[in-house]
């Protein structure tokens, strides 16, 4: 089996929180990987990092053995975030305290106390408040610069260029929860335009290809419709056809059926099932347990920004190893 997409120690910070914590995963050709996990656990962020819609903070991503993102060390790795967050909290407490004290005295003044003592107290409180403000917590104080310089001296620091990135995104494309098909053009043009712009395919060839893919998703009878005239399920099928038109090697699905009314979920899942059977490589963030169990060959369970458990789908459901996984599966099954 050949690895198409190799993910090594992928990390992503948003502000002071590490949303993705060193995720590693090998995606083989033909894999259909279901990604499960509670909401807010970082599944979308993970997926969006794979085609660099979100720039990872650190990690290595390779497509067909060629790295397109490779940063060994990021500054954030050398920030003691635990201490930093603690300090931020302390600072905020001090600030509020000083502010309250000042406010109390000032209120007394408003109430008519014009004594000298109060004026003195206000002056002092102001001073204290200013002093607190003048000592804000700086990230840099928690940054181990020496270690960072030492470690990153000979380390990799590579991000693919804009042009190549666009070509890569055609190879690792994405289908969204909110469809995101272009509202200003009809279904057919939605499928034709990206081929012409990204792959430089001649118009007629692009049209023919669009016909084929729209037929595959059963949307060939709606080719001249505007997106506004389509149902959610139809929009999603167009989005899938549009993605197929640009010859992707890997398709990322981010909760493709979560925004759909129940009766439309199956029409989309059936299309995805067909793609899986054709041997396409897919990574699917989903809450559809049946899909994960019966269509996917591997399941990855993400919680709190890291992979808790990863297994082939039969074993994943039959013998979940981790306690967190078992809880999650029980919760999901209770729901169904």
């Amino acid at each position: 089996m050949s690895v198409v997409l190799k993910i090594e120690k992928l990390a992503k910070y948003f502000g002071t929180t590490k949303i993705l914590k060193d995720i590693s995963l090998d995606v083989n050709k033909g894999d259909v990987i279901a990604i499960l996990g509670p909401s807010g656990s970082g599944k979308s962020t993970f997926l969006r990092c794979l085609n660099l819609l979100e720039t990872p903070t650190r990690g290595k991503l390779s497509f067909d053995d060629k790295a397109y993102f490779n940063i060994d060390y990021c500054k954030d790795d050398f920030v003691d975030y635990q201490a930093y967050n603690k300090a931020l909290e302390d600072y905020e407490n001090l600030r509020v305290e000083a502010e309250d004290e000042l406010a109390i005295y000032q209120n007394k003044k408003i109430e008519g106390d014009n004594s000298k003592e109060l004026a003195q107290k206000i002056k002092e409180a102001k001073k204290r408040y200013k002093k607190v403000l003048s000592n804000p917590v700086e990230k840099i104080d928690f940054f181990d610069k020496e270690k960072y310089n030492e470690m990153s001296k000979n380390s990799a620091n590579f991000v693919i260029g804009d042009k190549e990135l666009n070509n890569l995104r055609a190879k690792i494309t994405m289908v969204f929860q909110s469809f995101n098909i272009f509202n200003n053009i009809d279904v057919l043009t939605n499928c034709v335009m990206p081929q012409e712009k990204v792959l430089k395919r001649p118009h007629q060839e692009a049209r023919n290809r669009a016909f084929t893919e729209l037929k595959r998703v059963n949307m060939d009878d709606r080719m001249n419709y505007r997106p506004s005239a389509l149902s959610g399920g139809q929009k999603q099928r167009v989005a899938i056809a549009r993605a197929l038109c640009i010859d992707p090697e890997v398709i990322l699905f981010d909760e493709p059926t979560s925004a759909l009314d129940p009766e439309m979920v199956n029409e989309v899942l059936n299309v995805m099932k067909k793609l899986a059977q054709e041997g396409r490589t897919m990574i699917v963030v989903t809450h559809e347990m049946d899909f994960a169990r019966n269509v996917a060959n591997r399941v990855v369970f993400i919680d709190n920004g890291y992979i808790v458990e990863e297994n082939n789908s039969a074993d994943f459901f039959a013998h979940p190893r981790e306690k967190r996984t078992q809880e999650y599966l029980r919760f999901r099954q209770g729901e169904e």
């Binding site: 819609l53 890569l168 995104r169 995101n180 509202n183 989005a239 549009r242």
Partner: peptide, 14 residues
């Protein structure tokens, strides 16, 4: 909608 941008970029449009 910002999703329109993401839809386009994720297909490889500049």
């Amino acid at each position: 909608d910002l999703g329109q941008v993401e839809g386009a970029r994720s297909l490889g449009l500049s």
